[in-house]
């Protein structure tokens, strides 16, 4: 227990050093949200010209509606792949080296989850800057943006954890990719990230209700579009509870998977 924090920090440090060293990847995380925002934003302006649609979205600017969705989508597609590093570490023997060292074993998944969370905040920051340049105004200002970052971090932490738990069991990168891809699409599209729940059929509404991503989108959208409200705290607490559960679950799966 004594070394858990320290060990977690150094496991995360290793991942982050590599993250910042990959210039192309960093560039892509910049370009991708830019394309999404300009392309989708322009495509959908026609929609917001219709006053009824604008009413559903809660804003006359689709870009403003969509920005939280893009933030979540980008961090989702990155953090859900953090399990890949465990598969690779296992292949090259790095995992054995870690397990042979006197570190707290929980620090291995937690460190990688922490690194996913930090990468998530960096991406969220980039998207916020791009969105502001494109004319999006955040209702709750700087403080609201900070809360958005915290939520982004928490979501990246959850998805990183799920990905790591899967990777602890699955030993080939190809299988992991297939499963992860199968997961992200429904998580994204069965949420209110890109479209308001009001316009969805009732069966989809039901799925949206149990999708954890929804509880991240809701407060983010309030902070961006409408302003402070008490439901923001409630939603954040739900996400936080999921964080704790995923932490426990991932650690349990990981420790079981590595002890033969």
């Amino acid at each position: 227990m004594k070394y858990l924090l320290e060990d977690t920090y150094y496991v995360a440090l290793r991942e982050l050093k590599k993250y910042f060293r990959q210039k192309t990847r960093l560039l892509m995380t910049l370009i991708q949200p830019f394309i999404w925002l300009t392309l989708m934003g322009n495509m959908m302006t026609g929609l917001t010209n219709n006053p009824i649609a604008a009413n559903f979205l809660g804003t006359g600017n689709y870009l403003t509606f969509m920005t939280p969705g893009i933030i979540l989508m980008t961090i989702m597609f990155t953090s859900i792949f953090s399990g890949m590093s465990i598969v690779w570490d296992r292949r090259i023997g790095y995992l054995d080296k870690l397990l042979a060292a006197p570190i707290n074993r929980a620090a291995i998944p937690f460190g990688k989850m922490l690194s996913a969370a930090i990468q998530g905040v960096i991406q969220a920051g980039i998207i916020v800057v791009i969105a502001v340049i494109l004319g999006v105004r955040f209702q709750t200002g700087i403080l609201g943006i900070l809360v958005i970052f915290i939520i982004a971090m928490m979501v990246a932490f959850i998805l990183g954890g799920i990905s790591l738990a899967l990777a602890a069991k699955i030993k080939t990168i190809e299988t992991l990719m297939a499963i992860v891809n199968m997961l992200t699409m429904p998580l994204m599209f069965a949420s209110n990230a890109l479209f308001p729940t009001n316009v969805m059929p009732s069966w989809l509404k039901a799925i949206v209700k149990i999708n954890p991503i929804t509880y991240a989108i809701n407060p983010m959208r309030s902070l961006t579009v409408t302003g402070w409200s008490s439901s923001i705290i409630a939603n954040i607490l739900i996400i936080f509870a999921i964080d704790i559960l995923v932490m426990l679950w991932t650690n349990w799966v990981f420790v079981n998977a590595v002890s033969e």
């Binding site: 070394y3 150094y10 090259i92």
Partner: peptide, 26 residues
């Protein structure tokens, strides 16, 4: 312990690898 796989992180430098190893041994 040195495993048969040369368990080094090839996107880190030699010093970073050995530094992390030292840190994992506290």
């Amino acid at each position: 312990y040195s495993s048969q796989e040369s368990s080094l992180d090839d996107r880190l430098t030699a010093y970073e690898n050995i530094f992390l190893q030292g840190k994992f041994f506290h």
